[in-house]
Simulated scan of single mutants.
Amino acid sequence: MADFDIIVYGATGYTGRLVAEYLAGSYPAGVRWAMAGRSLTNLRLVRDDLGLPESTPLLTANSDDAASLRAMCARTTVVITTVGPYQVYGSDLVAACAATGTAYVDLCGEPGWMRQMIDAHHQAAKASGARIVFSCGFDSIPFDLGVLTLQEAARARFGRPAPQVKCRVRSMKGGFSGGTAASLKATMAAAARDPSLIALLASPFALTPGHSGAHQPAGLLPEYDPTINAWVAPFVMAPINTKNVHRTNFLLDQPYGADFVYDEMVVTGLGDLGKAAAEALAKLNPFAGDSGPKPGEGPSKEERETGHFDILFAGLMPDGGRIDAVVTGDRDPGYGCTSKMLAESALCLVQDVAGEGGIWTPGALMGVPLRDRLMAKAGMTFTA
């Protein structure tokens, strides 16, 4: 039996600290968890700042010390890692989990690296029983489980899945951290070094080795969407979310259909004002320049707690029928809600879901049990 149910690796970072705070406040008993990072001194500072008892287990592990990562994995059922960019700091940890059979959850939105890890470690994880799950935050749980929720309702009402789903982000309030910006910059740098990554980043099927489905909407330009009678603009997280949704369909043997079509856009409003807002948003790069937050920085507590999101999924049927699903969250999507989603994903692997080893998506491995946890514990709603 492992010493711990969960180890939060990267607990001294911005998001890791939020995860530790959530676990301490929501699961004061019954969950055996520890904090890990490269500096014991900094771990103690976080422990004391959060008001945790001195008995809180603290472990040292470093991304450039493979032996320390394997030793950490050997002591836990699940590793939560917030140490990104993952393409810079995460590869040895995935390898360690795949080798030791340790479950793993992260916040990754770096599809090029994710595909490299799938190619390198999926079979080893299957053999060891390691359940490795990327993208267990705002990218891409609300979208992955939102499509799952809609397709359940479509099968119940129409007897078949919706062959096309339009995801429309109706409202979203919240900031981004320095880690998010660093991940995007690392991805762009990797593509500059290896141009073959560009095609991979552009493909909706980058995470479905050997499968390419129907032509998918590009979602790169503002447009008027007659489905919702409003203007829409490109959504900055669509490039990772769409890939994860298609991987869920792939891993579950195409329950949404082999030619499933899916896209994501942001709703900007009606009429000329909606059009102008869509055109302005399409030109905006929130990560441009050096004036944004640095790694380790992010939204304030007030900003996290006053944030929210509301996402519509419209399922279009061949006969013109339509079915909708809605996903909402009660905190800043990137961090207030994400820290809860990440912690509950780890607990779902500990308490609710067995499943075989491999590199999974949240929807394919945890699906309904995770959705139930998020509604009961994490301030999220899924309705259809």
Results as ranks from 00 to 15, higher is better:
Tyr104Gln: 05
Asn241Thr: 01
Leu23Asn: 02
Gly296Trp: 05
Thr41Gln: 15
His308Cys: 00
Gly296Lys: 01
Gly37Ser: 11
Pro57Arg: 08
Met35Asn: 12
Ile80Val: 12
Thr227Val: 10
Val232Asp: 03
Gly257Ile: 01
Gly357Ala: 09
Gly355Met: 04
Ala20Asn: 14
Asp139Ala: 13
Arg32Asp: 04
Ala36Cys: 14
Pro295Cys: 04
Leu281Gly: 02
Leu365Tyr: 13
Gln116Val: 02
Gly289His: 06
His211Lys: 07
Arg170Thr: 13
Glu152Phe: 13
Pro209Gly: 12
Asp330Trp: 12
Met375Cys: 13
Ala127Ile: 01
Gly210Val: 01
Met1Tyr: 11
Arg131Ser: 11
Gly298Tyr: 07
Pro239Asn: 08
Ala192Phe: 08
Leu273Lys: 15
Ile132Val: 06
Thr268Ala: 05
Pro226Lys: 11
Ala278Cys: 04
Glu297Cys: 02
Ala67Arg: 00
Val353Leu: 01
His122Gly: 06
Thr242Tyr: 00
Ala346Phe: 06
Ala314Phe: 09
Met341Gly: 06
Asp253Tyr: 10
Thr381Glu: 04
Pro111Ser: 05
Leu148Val: 11
Leu316Ile: 13
Tyr22Ala: 04
Ala99Asn: 12
Trp360Pro: 08
Arg32Glu: 02
His211Phe: 15
Ala233Arg: 04
Ala230Ser: 14
Ala282Val: 12
Arg371Trp: 09
His122Pro: 03
Pro161Lys: 10
Thr227Gln: 00
Tyr86His: 00
Arg70Phe: 04
Lys283Arg: 13
Leu93Ile: 02
Met72Asp: 07
Pro209Arg: 06
Glu356Phe: 09
Asp332Met: 02
Ala186Trp: 11
Thr60Tyr: 05
Ala2Cys: 00
Asp144Pro: 05
Pro299Met: 00
Gly329Asp: 06
Phe287Thr: 02
Gly355Phe: 04
Gly379Gln: 05
Arg193Val: 11
Cys167Gly: 15
Val261Phe: 08
Leu370His: 04
Leu312Pro: 07
Trp360Cys: 08
